[in-house]
Design a protein around this nucleic acid. Structure first.
Lengths: 231, 231
DNA sequence: CTTCGCCTAAAGATATGACTTATTCAAGAC
DNA sequence: GTCTTGAATAAGTCATATCTTTAGGCGAAG
């Protein structure tokens, strides 16, 4: 998942530092400074910086140094940037943005899925809905989370749109972050679970309209819950 | 906009080659081969490869080489990947995916914009709608495109959601690609222009419902037009 | 004949020193 | 005060050496 090797370690340190605002926009780093700080060679520093540059977190200019860019320039769709921000100080802003994105995308994906999911995918959704019901009842948050992620990812994949499909990981990160940071009730709300079942049934039955509506209720609910729970 | 320097040139060559399918998944490159092919040093090759790796277009493993990854692994939201694909062979698939994304996102953004756009933004939208009307009438496709891009970008920005805002460039790329590849009528349809005016008016008036509806009509229309026009 | 584990060569990963180039900033000319 | 020029600086590039990982072969054991 992550970049490996020494550049990976640099990234894992610098990325979150920038994403969390610990290194604010305008901060200038010099590559030599990074070399000594991390005890690595130029090669390694340059590769790490290049990657940060491709995410638009920094720019590197001769005679100036490595400058942290303002948040508005960041490539906010980059999976790594999303993870870093979710882990850091503006988790709340990030969750809200992602929440709105989910409200826009997931109902559309559910409707598409109802039309063109494969039989296997429909079966899998049914099975996942069952799992969700069981683990919710047992208050097994770990398993619930895992199946919830799979549920949403399957629908996004079944939509047949590659861009929607790729949001599966992102949504997974959101759900994980929400659970890890205790923005979830200790036991999933029965109402929410019922809605998941409803989405699965609608998709199995090919009822795009109902799938879309039920999914919209889920993600709108999640977004509203965020406004109640988060700081 | 682009990565500069020698690694940039490597990227500008390899990226499109991979994105267009010219180098299919499974193709293995060796870094020494790239060094001689492009007449650059290891440093340069490694940095370029690292960036491709961070976009998940390739993986680099010891004793194996640099392997092109299947399309399903690519980071399809990366702006550079989007541009490369729009320029290449699967432009049509890319346009379709982006079209669905627009259908999901832009109506939501319009609704949000109607609620929380600044006065300046509302004014700008009004002005842009006028420009669209005028340039459409004059069949000045270049100016029309420019204002159309600004129109959609402004709404996405006015939504107050940073992730929506970042899709401005992407939508711009879609509109540009559509015009450049003659997937547009020679004169913008009066109906479409009227809808833009309607969106602008609704946002100015703070009517979220109408802004959303009109915008949906626009993007659904664009998507359908794609299905008619494209191969 | 199969399976396991060791060995080796291949290819990337990292380190390093020398050199190049672009850019800023300031001193000096007009 | 503005323009020019040049020196200082920090990143960019190159070439080379060395380290590290690992696929795949080979042989011994079962």
């Amino acid at each position: 998942m992550d970049i490996q090797g020494l550049p990976g370690r640099l990234l894992a340190d610098l990325g979150p530092a920038i994403a969390s605002g610990e290194l604010p926009a305008g901060t200038v780093l010099r590559s030599e400074e990074l070399e000594v700080r991390y005890g690595v060679s130029r090669t390694v520093v340059r590769e790490a910086v290049r990657i940060l540059e491709s995410m638009r977190l920094v720019t590197s200019k001769r005679r100036v140094g490595i400058t942290v860019q303002p948040k508005s320039d960041w490539d906010v769709f980059d999976p790594m940037v999303i993870r870093w921000r979710l882990a850091g100080a503006d988790r709340s802003a990030q969750l809200r943005s992602l929440g709105s994105l989910r409200v826009a995308v997931e109902p559309a994906a559910a409707a598409l899925a109802a039309r063109q999911a494969t039989d296997d995918q429909r079966r899998e959704l049914g099975a996942l809905a069952v799992e969700l019901t069981v683990t919710a009842r047992a208050a097994d948050l770990t398993s619930f989370l895992q199946h919830d992620i799979a549920f949403h990812a399957t629908i996004l994949r079944a939509s047949g749109n590659e861009m929607f499909a790729h949001l599966g990981d992102t949504v997974g990160a959101v759900l994980t972050g929400r659970t890890e940071h205790h923005l979830m009730p200790h036991q999933p709300r029965p109402y929410a679970v019922r809605l998941h079942r409803e989405v699965a049934d609608a998709i199995c039955a090919g009822d795009a309209e109902q799938a879309e509506q039920a999914m919209r209720t889920i993600v709108v609910g999640a977004l509203e819950e965020l406004n109640v729970t988060v700081d």
